[in-house]
Write a protein that binds this DNA or RNA. Structure first.
Lengths: 186, 186
DNA sequence: GTCTATACAACGATAGAC
DNA sequence: GTCTATCGTTGTATAGAC
């Protein structure tokens, strides 16, 4: 629990956005879990959307930082991609970023949609760089298009979350990422 | 427009589930678009969930049939997988099946969750069969694990939808599927 | 079988006291 | 800066006329 209401509200909203999405997260649910009054929320934020933006910014930064740590880390290109594919945790909770793309209210909010698009763009840029390195060093086939394969890698992870949640079982995520890595290592 | 209220309700609910998901689709919205009274809905269905089940069953059958037509069709294994990857349409609307996995209310409904899981299982079975054929015929590397690669293919499609919707642009879907197909053809 | 009227809770936001 | 009280709207469902 944070020291002040503002921080507590952001923390709780991060959790609820991850668990329930944006549309299904009510101010009431946030306030109940945070243990603060309604007035505090409307004092610190103009409304539900502004609070969601603050919370989503934090989640996006954290997710990007985790990806960057692996992708800018040591190892060959294929090892770093493998590290990224194996990085994902809490598969059944879904991706805190990708989850938002299913929420129509998110796509209708200019601020949230931009944040969502930018976050994937930034992770994609990291992947493109690693894959271009891999081609240059001869780790990957000469014909490989980094700008396509980066989206393939991102999609396997995002789709893995979808399949795992649909099945109620992390196994499809594990299989999907293993299958992708096997193709890359071939 | 269908002849009777029951059919009209199912048709409209299919559309709204695709557009807005389950939680965000209210009976009121369905009735408004269908142009029928509230009494008709509660006469034919026990409530929102039962109507959603009827609608989702139809969408799932249609999606499965489309996949089966390509995957059980003519051509080599890689050609059929390529056909499946290229099959997807209306990328920005998202996948009518995969979309449901992001909706917490769907996962909390036994009937809807089972329908969702079964639909992916059935498509996965088709993919496993095609890929096993491909290994047998020597189209794919001997070390290939059909049970993993099937999830990879499914995940690329589902993740492609997520990335495209996040970007507000079908391009990431196209890149992701092209990148996957390039790996398979190598 | 279809309709309108109504019920009651939860939604997002505002008012105003402390 | 935080609280409670309240507003108007929408959520899902029921009642009962036709």
């Amino acid at each position: 629990m944070s020291a002040n209401a503002r921080e507590t509200l952001i923390d709780v909203t991060q959790d609820l956005l991850w668990e329930r999405g944006y549309a299904a997260t009510s101010p009431r649910a946030i306030l109940d879990r945070a243990g603060v009054g309604q007035g505090s929320m409307y004092h610190h934020f103009s409304g539900k959307e502004a609070l969601a933006v603050a919370a989503f910014e934090r989640s996006a930064s954290a997710t990007f930082a985790t990806a960057a740590a692996v992708l800018n880390g040591p190892g060959s290109a294929v090892e770093r991609i493998g590290g990224y594919l194996r990085l994902q945790r809490e598969v059944l909770r879904g991706c805190p970023i990708g989850r938002m793309a299913a929420d129509t209210d998110v796509l209708e909010s200019a601020a949230l949609q931009t944040l969502l698009a930018d976050t994937f763009d930034r992770i994609r840029d990291l992947l493109v760089e690693v894959l271009a390195d891999g081609v240059e060093r001869g780790e990957l086939r000469p014909g490989t298009v980094p700008g396509e394969l980066a989206d393939t890698v991102l999609a396997v992870v995002q789709g893995g979350y979808v399949l795992a949640r649909a099945a109620g079982d992390p196994a499809p995520f594990e299989r999907a990422t293993r299958g992708a890595l096997a193709l890359l290592e071939a």
